[in-house]
Write a protein that binds this DNA or RNA. Structure first.
Length: 423
DNA sequence: TCTGGGGTCCTAGGACCC
DNA sequence: TCTGGGGTCCTAGGACCC
């Protein structure tokens, strides 16, 4: 086979067709490590970052805690049974997002093609960086060193020709590892690998595949296509490709990611105690709606579908949604719909979790409304958003709400600096 | 001291219209 | 009056990821 100029040019234009070098970076025990870095007293100790005080699960155990068998998702009492001395540290999201920003600036020194996969994971496409930065393994070593020197954090790096295998690689040596899966090694790595190790194959697919006699990636890759498409539809082909280590998904740069519109914005909360009182549930719902509204406005979105999610005491979870004739962006409008949905549900158990989310989002053009009452509402909302952004959620909220739903630190929008409503 | 919170994508069924 | 199929919109739920 010979390569002519047009093939080469299309390979350059279309990175999927060329051999790529992809790194997947996975920060080790990210939340716990950030906490240990910021508080020396926590270093070297078994700690775990947790969400809520009362009811919740372990979000991120440190490696010292993992040594006792403590895992993400575990309940507090299980963790304490395994490791009586474990220190539970409440999560501080601000620390993690600023650490993440610092990581991005380091990663982007190596390549502009950085795709943030989560707050502590990223894909880097370093194809063509060899002449400047060295081969992918050398890049991984330098990158790990910089992260360690600048931030005192370790990570695991997977290197392969696509995202699927790079992600697999970063999982294979934790903490603080580098794993290269070169094209020649792929078949050997995949042959006996359980299918559940691949990103995208969860418990349900693992179970269904096992029932079909497919346990390893090797078996998955050799399965006849029809055997997979019959039960799984279009996913079948993707599954077989995954078993073969095939993945053409491009690394999406952060600039492109920023341009992508969100599909939904939502918040949910598990109540401190299961609750059967409608009035109380609505009070929590209102707070959630206000948070969703502010996030919509901050992102410049309006939405046309409001969904309410409830979880009963027995963990049975369901949702009801309603499509609206016109888009909304205000907490109160979201609340009006969500509480109307709630009113139509006859609760047959105490409620454990309440959630609200807004979807069918549209980019919202910032313009001055035509009518004076809308104008007033818009400016008032913007002023309230500013204050709440600066001083925290619910520093100011609408007066009617303050009366109906007493909340700590709530002051009315009639508040003015120096006015008679100052608190 | 039973089991968090934020998303995306896909499917399936019913209503409705042509 | 009955038969029928395609397409779109809407809702509910499940699987998966971190």
């Amino acid at each position: 086979m010979s390569l002519d100029l047009s093939t080469l040019q299309s390979a350059i234009r279309n990175p999927q067709s060329a051999m790529r070098s992809i790194l997947h970076i996975d920060m080790n025990a990210f939340f716990a490590s950030v906490e240990q870095r910021s508080d020396p007293a926590l270093r070297g100790k078994p700690i775990a970052v947790v969400g809520s005080e009362r009811r919740g699960v372990i979000l991120s155990p440190s490696y010292e805690a993992r040594a006792f068998g403590v895992k993400t998702g575990m309940q507090y009492h299980e963790a304490r049974n395994l490791c009586p001395d474990i220190v539970l540290v409440p999560a501080s999201p601000g620390k993690y997002s600023s650490a993440c920003k610092q990581l991005i600036t380091i990663w982007e020194r190596f390549t502009p093609l950085v795709e943030l996969f989560s707050i502590d994971e990223a894909f880097l496409d370093v194809t063509g960086c060899e002449s400047l930065m060295g081969d992918p393994v050398q890049i991984a070593v330098r990158l790990k060193n910089e992260i360690w020197e600048i931030m005192g954090l370790t990570c695991s790096v997977g290197i392969a020709r696509n995202k699927l295998l790079a992600k697999l690689g970063s999982d294979m040596l934790k903490p603080d590892g580098i794993v290269l899966i070169s094209p020649g090694d792929e078949q050997e790595v995949l042959e006996d690998l359980p299918v559940k190790e691949l990103c995208g194959i969860g418990p349900s697919l693992t179970h269904q595949l096992a029932a079909m006699g497919i346990r390893t990636c090797g078996e998955l890759g050799r399965a006849p296509l029809a055997k997979l498409t019959a039960p799984f539809g279009i996913l079948g082909e993707r599954l077989r490709d995954m078993g073969r280590g095939i993945d053409d998904d491009p690394v999406v740069s952060r600039a492109e990611q920023d341009e992508e519109d969100s599909k939904s914005v939502g918040h949910s909360m598990t109540l401190d105690q299961d609750c059967g009182e409608l009035e109380m549930i609505q009070r929590h719902l209102l707070q959630l709606c206000e948070k969703v509204g502010r996030r919509l406005r901050r992102g410049g979105y309006t939405g046309r579908t409001v969904s309410l999610t409830l979880r009963y005491a027995d963990f049975q979870t369901f949702s009801r949604q309603q499509r609206l004739p016109r888009p909304v962006e205000h907490g109160l409008d979201i609340f009006a719909t969500a509480s109307a949905i709630l009113a139509r549900i006859s609760l047959d158990q105490p409620v454990r979790l309440v959630g609200v989310s807004v979807s069918s989002l549209e980019r919202h053009m910032s313009q001055v409304p035509l009518f004076s009452d809308e104008r007033k509402r818009k400016f008032t909302t913007e002023a309230m958003d500013d204050i709440n952004d600066r001083y925290g959620d619910f520093t100011v909220t609408w007066g009617t709400l303050a009366e109906r739903y007493q909340h700590e630190r709530v002051i009315s929008p009639a508040w003015r600096p120096g006015g008679d409503r100052e608190y």
